[in-house]
Amino acid sequence: MLTSGSPAPELELEDTAGQAWRLSDLRGAHSALLYFMRSTSCPICNRHVRDLVAQRDRFAADDVRVLIVVPEARDVGLAWKTDRGIPFPVLVGSAGTAHESVGLTRRVFGSMQQSGTVLVDPDGIIRHAHGATLPVNSYDKKGIIAAIDVMRSRASH
Rank of each mutant, 00 (worst) to 15 (best):
F36I: 06
D25C: 02
Q114N: 12
T3M: 08
Y139A: 12
A132H: 09
P135H: 00
A8V: 03
G116F: 08
R74N: 00
F36R: 06
P87M: 07
A17G: 10
L119A: 05
L134T: 11
H130S: 10
S39Y: 01
R27C: 00
L33W: 07
D140N: 12
S4H: 01
A73Q: 14
G93I: 03
G93C: 04
H99Y: 01
N137D: 14
D83Q: 13
G124A: 09
V76Y: 01
L26K: 14
R22M: 10
I86D: 06
T82A: 12
P135C: 11
A17S: 15
I144F: 02
I125E: 09
L91K: 10
A17V: 03
G116E: 12
E100N: 11
R27M: 08
H128W: 09
S111N: 11
F88I: 11
S41E: 14
R56T: 09
G103T: 04
S101T: 15
L33P: 11
C42Q: 09
E14C: 05
M1S: 14
T117I: 12
R47Y: 09
G103L: 07
D123Y: 03
E12V: 15
A29P: 00
L26D: 05
S41W: 12
M112N: 14
L26P: 00
N137Q: 11
W80G: 00
L134H: 12
P89I: 01
V90F: 01
R65Y: 02
L119T: 06
F109A: 15
S94C: 08
V49S: 08
G93D: 08
